[in-house]
């Protein structure tokens, strides 16, 4: 077990609020996350739970206004990223903290060749000249499985398939040997067969480059495939956090249990797929007490008024629930 102080990146009590006129939406309500080198930390939640806001904060691109930090710090190598100016943050972005996005066809610039989209970073962050950058770009393409001859360098995004585009996107992200990689639903837009390839690629690169990885997904099945550690986020709060093994063996939070029950399973073929009733509350109308109580089968009076703390961090398996570990008939 790694000690707390070895964390590569720590999110501490992070709170984010979006203001639209008189309406205030508390997208993040004090979340804690720790990321370690050579470890993939999966962040799981439904749409609107705050996954992407978390990644946006870490890379320093929270649109402000309307976004605003209400509390917390993001420590990277002991530096609070939230205290940096945009110019200072730019020396981290792409260089030390990189990001892979969900839909490569939208997130790659259609008007530039893949080569240019890789080499511009190398020239900017690593002061490489044109030839050095090109050599390095060819190397990178080989690394992500896009051929060793560098032919893809002269391709435009539209000339590549979906899987190739995502590989190119990954090549861009890892070009400057970042210490921390954010992968925001990197496989959601891909075919199932390609998903697995991309997941394996991310794992391979994590080991090769020793990166810490934040892997965001709405799909617990995908996270099970790739992550070493998993945190479950609900309505802007972490509700459960643990190593993958412990979490899947013994989920403590009813939300986590319900998420697991809704993973399609070949052994349950023919049965009805379990679903969680209701939906994630809007961030401007978070329920009182435990935000999950309107959808929770275990909810009682206490859950409606008292927000549970995230307990059990000491043994590496924490859950924020008054009824943590209790079971019921799903």
């Amino acid at each position: 077990m790694m000690a707390e102080n070895q964390a590569l990146l720590k999110v501490e009590n992070l709170g984010v609020c979006f203001t639209h006129g008189a309406m205030k939406a508390h997208a993040l309500r004090g979340i804690d996350l720790s990321f370690y080198r050579e470890e993939i930390h999966g962040l799981v939640g439904e749409s609107g739970s705050g996954k992407t806001v978390t990644s946006t904060c870490i890379i320093g691109l929270l649109p402000s206004p309307p976004g605003e930090y209400t509390s917390g710090r993001i420590l990277f190598d002991g530096v609070d990223l939230l205290g940096l100016s945009q110019a200072e943050m730019r020396t981290y972005r792409g260089r030390k903290i990189a990001m892979v996005f969900q839909e490569p066809s939208k997130y790659l610039n259609p008007a530039f060749k893949i080569g240019e989209q890789i080499t511009e970073m190398l020239k900017l962050h690593l002061d490489m000249n044109k030839e050095q950058a090109r050599q390095r770009a060819i190397e990178l393409l080989g690394l992500v499985g896009l051929g060793k001859d560098g032919r893809v360098l002269d391709s435009y995004p539209h000339e590549l398939s979906g899987g190739m585009k995502q590989r190119a996107m990954i090549a861009i992200a890892i070009s400057c040997n970042p210490e921390f990689l954010i992968a925001d639903e990197p496989t959601t837009a891909l075919d199932v067969t390609l998903q697995l390839q991309i997941l394996r690629l991310i794992k391979k690169l994590k080991d090769l480059l020793g990166m810490g990885v934040l892997f965001i997904s709405h799909d617990l099945g995908v996270v099970k495939e790739v992550a070493d550690r998993v945190s479950v986020i609900y309505a802007g709060r972490i509700v459960e956090s643990s190593t993958k093994g412990m979490l899947f063996e013994n989920p403590l939070h009813p939300y986590t249990k319900l998420l697991m029950a809704s993973i399609p399973d070949a052994r349950k073929r023919g049965q009805r797929l379990a679903t969680i009733p209701g939906r994630v509350p809007d961030a401007d109308a978070t329920p009182s007490g435990c935000a999950f109580h309107p959808r929770c089968p275990l909810a009682d009076e206490r859950c409606k008024t008292e927000n549970p703390e995230l307990k059990g961090k000491e043994n590496g398996h924490a859950a924020a629930c008054h009824h943590a570990g209790e079971s019921w008939n799903i």
Binding site: T91, G94, M99, L108, A111
Partner: peptide
Amino acid sequence: EYVITARAKGLTETMVKYKHALKN
């Protein structure tokens, strides 16, 4: 979306706007 990518790459605002967005 590619403008977000350009920012996430650590490019300056000048490059983001006058290189990436302008060409399109």
